[in-house]
Structures are given as structure tokens and as C-alpha cells.
């Protein structure tokens, strides 16, 4: 009972508010979907002819899906900076809430937004020749949700200590975009030079992109034998969620003497 009071309901409150606010601001909804679509269409069409043997638009599709998740997840955590600046966070921080509940509510809210946005894109996938088995579809949903949760957690970590949205954008460009470039979205890991390959193998997004590719085309060909396999990708995504979530809880429960959390 007490657990519900201090954990579940506050998290539910923060999560629901996040989703309601997001869909109320149409520019944010469009801003997270249209740029990746344009990006996908232009780069995909332009590079398509230079790629021999396969359709680059289709190759780029899983990565674009992950990019939508990345954009939405990360940008939804900007709300933390806004909440702090506009004062809403004050009342959250003096309420009797477990820090894990604050982190869970915010991250789950952002993750749900990102997940729902990516679903819009999944709907058009069959038109591009993707065909998935039932199991593949479930796997795809699981991977998209876990990626959304992990990336929102990462965004939470970055945003919690920041007091300006400008700072957030520079981190985005410096750190998160390269993370996407090196995820196998634009070019396969196998073809990259050795040093880049090493970086890509340590990038959690590589496994998201690989898994999304497997899920989307699960009906087209069997990929079970290749490495990394679906279970490995799932495990990496779960680990990514666990790490970012724990770090997020730690960063918002830190309350030392003299520290001003408002």
C-alpha cells in the first residue's frame, strides 16, 4: 500500500503527464518523425545507385526506425530541463516520492512516446518489402521498446544535471549522432575498418539496428545463424536499459549536504 503510494502512483503521474504533454505539442510530434523520413528518403535515394546489388533504401530503413526512436527518446528528456526551469520539478522534488519513481516515471513516459512514434513508421514497412513472422513482429516491438527505454534513460542522465537546452543540443550533436552513424545504420559493420569495427561493436545501438533488421525482415530470410543473434541483441538491449536506468536513479537520488536540488 505504502509502496503504491510512494512508487507506483507518482511514477504513473509523471509518465502520463509526459505523454499527454508531448501529443499536445504538434510541432514536437512532427519534428521527431519528419526529419528522419526526409533523411531516409534523400540519403537512401541518393546513395542507392552507388550500392551494388541491393536496395539501399531498404538497407537504411531499420536504421531510420532506430533514428526515430533516438530522436524522440532523447528530445523527450529535454522536458526535464524545461520542468526544472519552469518550476514544475520543484513540487516533484519535495513530494514524498522514491527517487527511482521519479526516474521511472520520466523515462517510461519518454520511452512510450518514442515507441509509439516508431510504430507509425513500422506500419509503412510492409510497403517497402518488409514482411515479418508473428514471432519476428513481437521481437521487433520488444527491441524497439527496450531501445526507447535505454535511450530515454541516457537522455535523462544527460539532462538531469543541465540547466540549458543549448547544452543539451551540443551533447546531442557531439555524442548521440556519431552513436547513430556507427550503429550499422548507414554501412554494415563487416565492411568497416578494424578500429571503427571495434567502436561499433561496443555501441549498444549496433545491436538495436541489427535486431530491428532481423525483426523487420523475419519473413524474408532466416538470420538465426549469423552473429549477433536475436537473443544476444535482446540481452545487450536489456543490459543497456538496466545500466542507464540505475545510473539515472543514482543521479536523481544524490542529495548531499548543502547541495541545492531545486
Amino acid at each position: 500500500m505504502k509502496h503504491n503510494q510512494e512508487f507506483f502512483w507518482p511514477a504513473y503521474s509523471l509518465c502520463k503527464r509526459e505523454v499527454v504533454r508531448f501529443f499536445r505539442q504538434r510541432s514536437r510530434v512532427i519534428g521527431a518523425i519528419v526529419p528522419p523520413l526526409v533523411f531516409w528518403f534523400l540519403i537512401g535515394s541518393g546513395l542507392g545507385n552507388s550500392f551494388r546489388g541491393s536496395n539501399y533504401l531498404i538497407y537504411l530503413f531499420p536504421g531510420t526506425l532506430v533514428m526515430i526512436v533516438l530522436f524522440t527518446a532523447i528530445f523527450s528528456t529535454i522536458s526535464i530541463i524545461e520542468d526544472r526551469r519552469e518550476g514544475f520539478l520543484q513540487s516533484v522534488l519535495v513530494a514524498p516520492i522514491a527517487p527511482a519513481s521519479v526516474a521511472l516515471g520520466k523515462i517510461l513516459g519518454g520511452a512510450m512516446i518514442a515507441f509509439l512514434q516508431s510504430m507509425i513508421f513500422v506500419i509503412i514497412a510492409p510497403m517497402l518489402g518488409a514482411s515479418f513472422t508473428f514471432l519476428g513482429f513481437v521481437f521487433l516491438l520488444a527491441i524497439l521498446f527496450l531501445s526507447a527505454f535505454g535511450l530515454t534513460g541516457l537522455g535523462f542522465l544527460i539532462a538531469w544535471k543541465m540547466d540549458s537546452t543549448q547544452g543539451f543540443h551540443s551533447v546531442m550533436n557531439l555524442f548521440l549522432m556519431p552513436m547513430w552513424f556507427l550503429s550499422g545504420s548507414l554501412f554494415p559493420v563487416e565492411g568497416a575498418p578494424m578500429w571503427l569495427k571495434c567502436v561499433m561493436l561496443f555501441n549498444p545501438l549496433t545491436y538495436s539496428v541489427t535486431a530491428v533488421r532481423m525483426g523487420l525482415f523475419s519473413g524474408n530470410f532466416i538470420v538465426l545463424r549469423s552473429w549477433p543473434g536475436p537473443l544476444f541483441c535482446l540481452a545487450v538491449s536489456l543490459l543497456f536499459c538496466a545500466v542507464t536506468f540505475s545510473a539515472a536513479v543514482l543521479s536523481c537520488s544524490k542529495k548531499t549536504i548543502g547541495e541545492n536540488i531545486l
Partner: peptide, 24 residues
Amino acid sequence: FQSPSLDSKLTVMENLVYQSLLYG
């Protein structure tokens, strides 16, 4: 608080409901 803590993008009712949930 001295500075407002209301969420300006939510209605009065929504503000109060979310605040209530924070207190269980």
C-alpha cells in the same frame, strides 16, 4: 513556491490530478 510550479500546458484539473497522484 515563489516561482510558479504549475504546468502551463496542462489544464487546472490535470495539474491537480497529477499532483494528487504524486502524493498517492
